[in-house]
Design a protein around this nucleic acid. Structure first.
Lengths: 124, 124
DNA sequence: AATAAAATCAGGAATTATTACTGATTTGAG
DNA sequence: CTCAAATCAGTAATAATTCCTGATTTTATT
């Protein structure tokens, strides 16, 4: 079954994704690792991240400045996204009312994101 | 000033974006228009949609199946996104608690999105 | 209406994020 | 140890999006 085998590269990619609060892009993960693991391929990073998303081990936060930004922390929390510098911060998940009835929709994941401008980009 | 001039193409693109509840991609908008306006360019659609986003006249809902999906309705509402077929539905905006204090963050827009599987994709 | 400057456009090239393919390597089960 | 399945590197291919240039349209001003 896909994604069930052990894979040292997969563990590397996952731990790197989870090692930061910056909500990185796939390319960032690749760049962090390629120094120490020069035989790592960008394609492998993309493929494994796709697996993580399928298996609910990672989520896409937003597409910022053309790059999909990821979060290996799938616990309930919301995000602040600065449109100017692209910085993404975690904040506690606000409590939200139920989305009415079932709506004939099977929800896997709720995303709450505040788009705006961070302090640094406001003051400068 | 950019985006302030009248432009017949811009109006076309905007009205097409607002004419549907399907939350289309830029390419979809282009394809709707190119029949009747064969001298419309895809680049023009992208450029104008970028202006709409800058000016708060449109928002990106999510990147689904590799395409950025848009909404010309910027009134407060939430979305149901089917990961399987890519369909996006509007639902009323749930009431959410404040995001704590100001957090030193100037919020322009709050996005609430439920990712999951729609009825059609669940039953089949 | 005529004109000039600014804004916008088409068309296509260029960029870039992401995916697909292939043959080699690694892993897991017997 | 051996074989099949999973995974990988490397690279080619794809596709979304942006950039560039010269032409057209719009706006402001006569």
């Amino acid at each position: 079954m896909k994604g069930s085998n052990f894979s040292s590269k997969r563990e590397l990619i996952y731990s790197t994704l989870c090692s930061t609060k910056t909500h990185p892009s796939a390319k960032w993960v690749y760049e962090q690792l390629k120094e120490d693991y020069p035989d790592l391929s960008l394609g492998t990073v993309y493929r494994n991240i796709a697996l993580f998303k399928e298996n609910g081990k990672a989520v896409a936060v937003a597409n910022i400045l053309g790059e999909e930004r990821l979060d290996g922390d799938t616990s309930a929390h919301a995000h602040l996204v600065c449109k100017t510098c692209g910085k993404i911060q975690d904040i506690p998940m606000p409590s939200i009312t139920q989305k009415g009835d079932a709506q004939d929709f099977n929800t896997d994941f709720v995303s709450v994101t505040y788009f705006g401008t961070c302090k640094d980009c406001t003051s400068h």
